[in-house]
Design a protein around this nucleic acid. Structure first.
Length: 1060
RNA sequence: GGGCCAUUAGCUCAGCUGGUUAGAGCGCGGUCCUGAUAAGACCGAGGUCGGUGGUUCGAGUCCACCAUGGCCCA
């Protein structure tokens, strides 16, 4: 016996019970060990999830992919590692810990103690790693959770040391400086990434127009504009666009230059210049290049000796500011880049807290954000001020503390992307080569990554913070730089402080205690205090998790590298994880670190909008798992095209529940109900060879499904397999079971019934195996009740997740049969449409249905379908419509895909000629296989297409050459049958309402008019058999019967049912 | 400024190498089916396939330009 099936279960509750059951029966452990002895391996690398916050529903998308493909490969017998990873170092974590303590600057951290701070960061990571693990388990993700890797591990950090040493050996590691966005409150730089995501706010600043007097041209000035007056003290150049036109204008005693485009040609007015002025000369920007000018603050000691030049720059815009751009390389990114191009001096006016340093006179010791007024006063005093104007713009702010950012030039460490290796090949080229060898899914990933690789600058790997990889770089005052490649090397080279480090993780502050002797001059050298870019931590994972430094020749690393597959959310990863892995792998092994990558887009809310806590449209993973369940969530993600954003929500989840989960559940419930009534048990054998069309067809569809799902998953595709499963479940429920119902409930226990059970059981069990990677909970639920081990067959594994992946048997696939069955469905569908037009319900039997099939009707095929169509439509006979019947009217058209290539421009003439012909004659001729004369052309029968057109006056429906016409003339006898069937329907509903079991025998009481009496006299046996009524009593129902007054097609009937 | 992608029903999206009447799901209205079915079937409403040109016998599909949106880079 199968366990009875709850008809309307609480699916999320079933999932929670199943989690417990898996635990109690050590199923996950058995799964992880299932292929330990296998020869074939499938290597998956899990991209580390940031262990800094709980998991969100957006993580569930990627993690479901990870789980689906690992489960699929497990069932196929591949040995795997099942290792999950956590990203555990970096500024994100520092920020959260700072927040928890209310810290607002690095000074607070220093005061708190770097060691304590780092320990708190580590603890935070542990806490969220545990929470994410728990959530992942709830999602149904099966990994070796006790073997997760953490990027803050010693092994991970030391592997990066090895990598950096290799870079240094190759000459690719260097110290450079760059201008970067800087928060003066936090006293740290921010990456562009941090600014782009949420770092701008609209604000108003006082901008200033000022005059820069040209040295070569007395009494003439450049007019420049800036929104950041504090940077003027660092001005060294003014940029013009060489191709744009500039104007020299006279205004009173002043003569200055600005972009011509800022002066309106018609009105002669300007949005920049106030008052009257006149244009003296127009000239191209290039004519100004090379001139020098007096800077606005040349009197300050820091500006001593600086020559201010006019330079050319193509990025200068002619309609913002004045068309002449103030350049301060110490205070801006583009400015700094120009300083390299034009060899401009770099003046750095402020320290890490945004305060002017010594040498800036009245500005020294002032905060950069507070000096606009004194600067304006000074300019005014010097006669350089032209105008002050409020300016509204989007300005970058610190995403942590909202401070306005400044730009500072700071020393950072870089990996050189264009330095050549021993064979003259730069790192960038190695990465490009590796990128081409990778299978990018979706395909545009390749172009995306290549685009990034072509454009990327050298990799800045340092960050002036506390909790992260300790960069093992030891620069000596003598100019020599030592890089340490392992902990052993550090111990060997240590000349001081090793005892303070020993026993600690390679983090600040402990590792900073160790000093080594310079390999060049022997002086004691300290580590730089910078920590590493966190993408180093993730990029080394394909190496660190495989113990690369120890098993490089043979063993673990050798066996599992490169990974067969990774999958992550695309946004960001091209220049983050994918990039870091490519770079590090190019340095260490000059090859691709993974063979295929599946990227997916982002999770949006149900309306397609970004989820935000503040918008109130965010859905928490725990809540979603609780309300919709993990399986529908997984399915919702897996059925979606990974290239586009998915709209996630409860309505979408409910759709999955209704369409897939419930439909499958009801089919399963149907099977169990009747199998239990009949005492049918699975014996573990293959399904019985059946001569029943429905059984053979369902098996054919099943094997096609296995083939499709398998090939989809083989190519890392889930949407197609998921949709194929959906359509199979639909066919299973709404055609196979619907059409087979009578086979299950008929009273004879014959071979046909046996093969129906055997077929349906086999298909359900196979289906849940195919679905198990997608919906592990539901699949297990069904498998546990259906698998043959329950009836004593020994061969069934204890869990669906320990089963072998089903094999598609090509010989079971009968495409002709599949087509025929689709034709039957189509005829049934058209027949229902025709009945609906005629207003005759299906319960009313009809004498005849006339059909026409496109092409040559195959009599045998028709015979095979006939029974299905007749039963489905409740019709007595099916007749083909004669081609010349007046039930049909035709339209003929040229078969364009055939005629087009053959006749080209003559297609138009053929079309016209065909229009002249009598369609019926053409149809008859084509039916006889004769050629068709159309004007000057002679066409083969297959060069003409025939369609039937709607005939008025018949209850017909048609589609794609299929026509169904129903005979609406209903003889008296059939009307009585219809009435009988209606009564059966009413009694069945009453049985259900009365709560009777399906197999309960009853007595039915009835009272009605003469028509009813006649119908029940003629069709009493039918009614009794259908309703399991031992007898039909024409009598008032007794008090204990379930009784209802019914209006049956206009006849008042009293019906009562009583269990015997 | 450069690159990539998109634009098809109220919403979310299919539409293969150009070919006959452009589809599905959701939502809405109606009818029907059902002792597995909080499911399903049928009917209905809803489209200048972003725009303009071009190639072609024929363009939602190919090409060019433009517009709008998104992503990436500068």
């Amino acid at each position: 016996m199968f366990d009875d099936v709850e008809p309307k279960p609480d699916f999320p509750a079933l999932e929670r019970e199943r989690l417990q059951w898996w635990q109690e029966h050590s199923i996950v452990a058995q799964y992880l060990q299932r292929n330990d002895a296998a020869d074939k391996r499938w290597s998956f690398i899990d991209g580390p999830i940031t262990a800094n916050n709980p998991m969100g529903v957006h993580h569930a998308w990627g993690r479901t992919y990870k789980d689906v493909f690992q489960r699929f490969k497990t069932m196929q017998g591949y040995k795997q590692r099942y290792q999950n990873g956590f990203d555990c170092q970096g500024l994100w974590i520092e920020v959260e810990v700072e927040r928890a303590h209310g810290f607002s600057s690095k000074l607070d951290i220093e005061a708190f103690g770097v060691g304590k701070f780092v320990e708190e960061c580590k603890a935070r990571v542990q806490r969220f790693a545990a929470q994410i693990t728990e959530q992942s388990v709830r999602l149904g993700q099966w990994m070796d959770w006790d073997d997760s890797y953490f990027t803050n591990s010693d092994e991970n950090n030391y592997a990066i040391w090895h990598f950096l040493k290799q870079c240094h050996t190759n000459g690719w590691l260097y110290k450079g400086n760059d201008s970067m966005p800087w928060c003066p409150r936090c006293a740290t730089g921010l990456s562009n990434m941090e600014i782009v995501t949420e770092g701008y706010r609209e604000m108003t600043h006082r901008s200033v127009y000022l005059k820069l007097p040209l040295i070569e041209r007395e009494d003439e000035s450049l007019l420049v504009w800036t929104t950041t007056p504090w940077t003027l003290a660092a001005n060294v150049a003014a940029a013009v666009h060489p191709e744009l036109t500039y104007a020299r204008v006279r205004q009173g005693d002043d003569v200055f230059y600005l972009s011509r485009a800022l002066i309106d040609a018609d009105s002669g007015k300007s949005k920049v210049l106030q008052g009257e002025f006149e244009i003296e000369v127009e000239l191209p920007g290039r004519d100004l290049v090379g001139l020098t000018y007096r800077g606005p603050f040349d009197e300050l000691p820091a500006l001593d000796g600086v020559v201010h030049r006019v330079i050319e720059w193509d990025e200068v815009s002619e309609d913002e500011g004045t068309g002449i751009v103030h350049i301060a390389p110490g205070c801006g990114q583009e400015d700094f880049a120009l300083s390299k191009q034009f060899d401009l001096p770099v003046i750095m006016p402020i320290d890490q807290f945004g305060t002017y340093t010594e040498g800036f006179g009245f500005l020294s010791d002032c905060f950069a954000g507070d000096v606009a007024s004194p600067i304006f006063d000074s300019l005014k005093e010097k006669g350089a001020l032209y105008r002050i104007q409020d300016y509204v713009h989007r300005y970058p702010i610190c995403w942590r503390c909202d401070s306005e950012l400044v730009f500072r030039v700071v020393d950072e460490w870089y990996i050189d992307m264009d330095g050549a290796d021993g064979e003259g090949k730069p790192l960038r080229e190695h990465m490009v080569d590796a990128t081409h060898k990778i299978n990018w899914i979706p395909e545009f990933g390749l172009a995306r990554e290549l685009d990034w690789l072509r454009n990327m600058d050298d990799w800045m790997i340092s960050k002036k913070r506390y909790y992260g990889l300790a960069l093992p770089i030891y620069p000596c005052a003598c100019g020599n730089v030592d890089v340490i490649g392992s902990v052993d090397e550090l111990q060997e080279r240590a000349v001081e402080g090793w005892e303070k480090y020993e026993g600690h993780s390679p983090h600040r502050p402990w590792v900073d205690e160790v000093r080594i002797a310079c390999s060049s001059c022997g002086e004691k050298v300290s580590r730089i205090t910078d920590v590493g870019n966190p993408w180093l931590d993730a990029g080394i994972v394909p190496y660190a998790t495989l113990d690369y430094t120890h098993t490089r020749e043979a063993g673990l690393w050798h066996d599992w590298f490169p990974a067969d597959f990774i999958t992550e959310s695309f946004p960001g990863q091209f220049r983050n994880w994918f990039y870091a892995m490519l770079a590090m792998s190019a340095v260490l092994e000059q090859r691709e670190p993974f063979r295929a990558v599946l990227g997916h887009a982002q999770v949006r809310d149900e309306k397609g909008e970004e989820m935000h806590k503040s918008k109130g449209n965010a859905i928490w993973f725990d809540e979603a798992a609780d309300k919709m369940g993990a399986d529908p969530m997984r399915w919702l993600f897996m059925r979606h095209n990974p290239a586009t954003n998915v709209n996630f929500g409860y309505a979408a989840g409910d759709e999955v529940r209704r369409n897939l989960v419930l439909t499958l559940w009801n089919t399963y419930s149907f099977f169990v109900t009747y199998a239990n009534i009949d005492g049918w048990q699975p014996d573990g054998a293959a399904p019985l060879a059946s001569d029943n069309e429905l059984d053979r067809w369902l098996l054919s569809e099943l094997h096609q499904l296995i083939a499709d799902v398998t090939s989809g998953l083989e190519s890392y595709e889930t949407a197609m397999p998921a949709r194929r499963v959906e359509s199979f479940v639909e066919l299973l429920s709404n055609w196979y079971v619907r059409r087979s119902r009578r086979r299950f409930w008929k009273s004879e226990d014959d071979g046909d019934k046996q093969s129906a059970y055997s077929t349906l059981h086999h298909c359900l069990v196979t289906l849940v195996k195919l679905m198990s990677p997608f919906t592990p909970f539901l699949s297990e639920e069904l498998y546990q009740n259906l698998n043959s081990a329950r009836s004593g067959a020994e061969d069934a594994p204890p869990s669906v997740h320990l089963c072998d992946w089903p094999d598609a048997d090509a010989s079971a696939i009968d495409e002709t049969l599949n087509d025929e069955m689709r034709t039957a469905m189509r005829l049934a569908s058209l027949g229902r449409a025709a009945r609906s037009k005629a207003g005759i319900k299906v319960r009313q039997p009809l004498q005849c249905v006339y059909v026409r099939l496109p092409g040559k009707p195959d009599d045998d095929a028709l015979r095979r379908l006939e029974q299905q169509v007749l039963e489905e439509l409740n019709v007595r006979e099916l007749a083909l419509i004669a081609e010349d019947s007046d039930l049909l009217q035709y339209d003929i058209k040229p078969n364009l895909p055939v005629l087009g290539p053959k006749y080209g421009k003559d297609v138009g003439k053929i079309r016209a000629a065909l229009a002249e012909l009598d369609p019926l004659n053409v149809v008859l001729a084509a039916g006889r296989g004769e050629e068709i004369a159309a004007g000057e052309f002679t066409l083969a029968p297959d060069e003409v297409l025939v369609t039937t057109v709607e005939q008025e006056g018949y209850a017909s429906a048609q589609e794609s050459g299929f026509v169904v016409v129903v005979d609406t003339d209903v003889p008296e006898s059939l009307l009585d049958e219809g009435l009988a069937r209606e009564i059966v329907h009413r009694i069945q509903n009453m049985r259900r309402d009365a709560g009777f079991a399906i197999s309960d025998r009853i007595t039915t009481y009835w009272q009605g008019d003469d028509d009813i009496r006649r119908v029940l006299a003629a069709h009493g046996d039918y009614v009794r058999a259908e309703t399991l009524s031992e007898s039909l009593e024409e009598a008032p129902p007794p008090d204990d019967a379930h009784t209802e007054q019914q209006d049956v097609d206009g006849h008042a009937v009293t019906l009562g049912v009583r269990k015997q």
